[in-house]
């Protein structure tokens, strides 16, 4: 009674290539949305700081929504809402938009904290030296405040990198989705998950260690 038909084929070297490509896609969508989100979030953070009452009533609640609703729900909602608005976005574009706004919502708080970390006397001193508002922001607030919140920014960025796995819910084949596909075919979940996990770990662990190291050095 030998089985004549085999449904599952083992893990082949070719599949490693498939996973590598998927890992690059994870990397690409993370880098893109973290960079865009950081720029947008810094702008929001500055608006929250300067806008005071007006920003607290308008911008802050909107950003708060993105922090209070699960990312996966945001992704599904936006992916299904875009066609209603007449936009036809593929999973990658929808994922990037939501991840960017999500990053921005998180970075906004970090950035505001950074601006607040720069003492008023330093800023007044900068203005008294004849710096314009923007030069003060660029040459005084950015280096000092940026340094103060750099570790929390790294935390946000790594969090978004890990959360980018959720874009798979829209059908974007990033690393974790690719692993799932391979598991279904090869029935070797342990090996494949270990590979995927090792990739995330190898990316996240050194960066977080380096951020802690910098934090300790700057704290002295």
């Amino acid at each position: 009674m030998e089985p004549t038909l085999k449904f599952f084929s083992g893990f082949a070297p070719n599949d490693l290539w498939f996973m590598g490509e998927a890992a690059l896609r994870t990397l690409w969508i993370s880098v893109l949305s973290i960079s865009l989100g950081t720029v947008l979030g810094t702008l929001f953070g500055w608006m929250l700081y300067e806008g005071r009452r007006a920003a607290a009533l308008t911008l802050a609640p909107v950003l708060d929504v993105f922090r209070s609703v699960p990312l996966i729900i945001q992704l599904v909602l936006f992916y299904n809402f875009a066609p209603i608005m007449g936009l036809n976005l593929d999973p990658f574009a929808s994922g990037t938009v939501i991840l960017t706004v999500y990053t921005a919502a998180l970075v906004a708080n970090v950035a505001r904290g950074g601006i607040e970390a720069v003492g008023a006397p330093i800023r007044r001193a900068a203005r008294s030296l004849g710096m314009s508002y923007w030069r003060d922001l660029r040459h005084v607030v950015l280096p000092i405040g940026g340094r103060a919140v750099f570790p929390s920014w790294v935390g946000v960025a790594l969090g978004v990198m890990k959360d980018s796995a959720l874009v798979s819910v829209l059908g974007y084949v990033e690393l974790l989705k690719a692993s799932q596909i391979l598991i279904t075919r090869t029935q070797e979940p342990f090996l494949i998950l270990a590979l995927a996990g090792a990739f995330y770990f190898a990316l996240s662990y050194p960066v977080s260690r380096y951020a802690t190291h910098l934090e300790n050095r700057w704290a002295q």
Binding site: D163, A165, S168, L176, I183, L193, G197, Y200, F201, S208
Partner: peptide, 19 residues
């Protein structure tokens, strides 16, 4: 702390299934 939460769920789902 260094792997996605979804990965951890998959591990407890499929990964333990391997055993």
């Amino acid at each position: 702390r260094n792997t996605p939460a979804l990965f951890q769920l998959f591990f407890f789902g499929f990964g333990l299934g391997a055993f």
